[in-house]
Design a protein around this nucleic acid. Structure first.
Lengths: 346, 346
DNA sequence: TTGTAGGCGTTATCAC
DNA sequence: GTGATAACGCCTACAA
């Protein structure tokens, strides 16, 4: 019952072809395929046959029975952030080694659109879900609460309160912000501005917390007008920066808490003909690839993206095979990379 | 035969549930689901039932029959290039509107690893393929030649000779390079270096062609030592730049032909304490987001990523529904964005 | 350890 | 237009 002609595959081989070739039964072959014990002799027989026939399990048929797709979904708020794409890349690599593929799903924040996309994603298409939530994505969160009942979910980058979703991979934002702010203070800065993302968002709150703790720890007065928000966007970062520059006693140093806003800040400083270091000190977040390109080299806080990726991939694989629930909140540390953007004053 | 309890879904509804609820036959419902004509009265009946049951087609079962997954695969050489990620994002958005999901597949260039990944990808998992090929990816190309017999494939960014793969979306690299080089020449530069990607690669060859044409057109002598290669990598771009700087009569202007190499070049110039504009003029490729961040603003060649994305999405959708073969080589134009990195000399 | 048989939910091919 | 029925390829009791 072969389906080749002149060495060209006409129809993909099925288990039945293996049965015909080996003389074994369907059940035996299927068992072998699913990792059960089979007599050594038969094992060899089956493996030979698989090789010859170039057999591959039909995933539709398997899925029809098992409801499993060996796809995992990756929900991201954007693909323009290197943070997301790096993690996607690492995870895709590891999951591929285990026969899984990654379906990407960019959520827009528009819940009508997102609803359709998530529906589409989840209908039999994924066995598990990795999520980097959008800031303030109420709808997504609710949806995850429901989904987690049927498939494993790991949430990255952002913590939220939930009795059902309990598997998180985060970085210690507060501590990272503390260290960044500390660096500025230790260089003598007492007028330290911070550009945060979304007001009330988890990440922003954490970073703000670290910032405030550092000021407090070193007895630097806290000023509300030094804390501005830029929604994690370049254009908003620009505005936030202008806001700080307009202050009567403008900060001598600024801590910008993400990549995109930093681009906006740099553009803003450029236009105002202010020199980083000379006129204003800067420490940024996540600028890895380009921090050295910018003059002067920027001091930056770096998230352990690789570690996040590896850890998350391992975790989802664990959840996928078996113990469906190993809820954990994992917190990884950021590192600080020195630059030449912080001026020592007095 | 409902499968709800207290409003909670126990089992996903099937066509049979609709049959039970409407009194119609399986065939009729299935026909409706696949866009065939059904009596108005029955249409309403079915739609109500679908609504009530929250019915969704089981894609495993459908796939088992049709061999279609409504996934499309996107093969990229890396997710660290904004070129790729932007296009992925656009395409994911459009395909989602049509019920398709995007499976990402990062090829490494290591053909053993890639082979496994591509196998995995293609086994019933995708209905079509979008590809941004790796430079010199011989294996991938051969594989595409085979795959294209069974599913539609569109190749982006890079052209290769093939009797089977015939659907390409490209930019006019030669013309873009001509215009970029022209800009330098018109500013008075006659010692113009170019940093290309991979020697012999399609894209590099095209960009080199445009560069040479411009020199020729304006009667500027061509010098081999001004043409160096950096494999599209940051570190290699750094080296390539050094190579140019070491020349006895080093170029007064450099055209760097991709994003990553430009980062390397900027780093190199930084370390050699050479000022862009003042000491050396520069025009780059694809630096969109950060060109304004860098001082001085870089002149850049911008690829029409949006247009590439939209066009490609439309094309693959066309191929997916029906006319399996509308081979075409689409060429889109790049634009030049002025900056302050080119000095007028004499 | 191996074989048998039923069913997963659809679509497609027929008749009607 | 509609309704029965047979695949699609696999997994999993259950029986041997």
């Amino acid at each position: 019952m072969k389906r080749f002609i002149f060495g060209v595959i006409l129809l993909a081989a099925t288990i039945k072809d293996i049965v015909a070739m080996t003389g074994l039964s369907l059940g035996t072959v299927s068992k072998y395929l699913n990792g059960h014990q089979v007599k050594e002799k038969n094992r060899v027989l089956i493996e030979e046959s698989i090789e010859k026939l170039d057999f591959n399990v039909n995933l539709f048929a398997r899925g029809l029975r098992t409801k499993l797709s060996s796809n995992i979904g990756f929900i991201v708020p954007s693909l323009e952030l290197t943070f997301s794409t790096k993690i996607v890349a690492i995870i895709e690599k590891i999951l591929a080694e285990h026969g899984y593929t990654v379906i990407i799903c960019v959520v827009t924040g528009d819940s009508k659109v997102d609803k359709a996309k998530l529906q589409n994603l989840v209908y039999q298409k994924v066995d598990g879900l990795l999520v980097i939530p959008h800031a303030n994505h109420q709808f997504l969160q609710q949806w995850l609460e429901v989904m987690v009942k049927s498939i494993p979910i790991i949430v990255l980058d952002r913590l939220f309160n939930s009795s059902t979703v309990q598997h998180f991979v985060l970085v210690d934002n507060a501590n990272a912000a503390f260290k960044a702010t500390e660096l500025l203070i230790k260089a003598g800065h007492r007028d330290v501005g911070i550009i945060l993302g979304d007001r009330g968002g988890y990440t922003s709150d954490e970073r703000r917390k670290g910032y405030l703790q550092a000021l407090d720890h070193y007895h630097v007065p806290i000023k509300d007008e030094y804390q501005v928000y830029g929604k994690y966007l370049k254009a908003e970062g620009y505005k936030a920066c202008e806001q700080l520059l307009k202050l009567p006693n403008r900060p001598t140093a600024i801590f910008v808490t993400n990549y995109d806003m930093t681009l906006g800040v740099l553009e803003c400083l450029n236009e105002h003909i202010l020199q980083v270091y000379e006129d204003i000190s800067l420490i940024a977040f996540d600028l890895d690839e380009i921090s050295k390109v910018i003059k002067p080299n920027l001091a930056i806080v770096t998230q352990p993206v690789e570690e996040i990726g590896y850890y998350t991939a391992e975790e989802i694989l664990k959840s996928l095979k078996g113990n469906h629930a190993n809820p954990e909140i994992k917190i990884l540390e950021c590192s600080i990379q020195q630059g030449a953007s912080i001026k020592e004053i007095n």
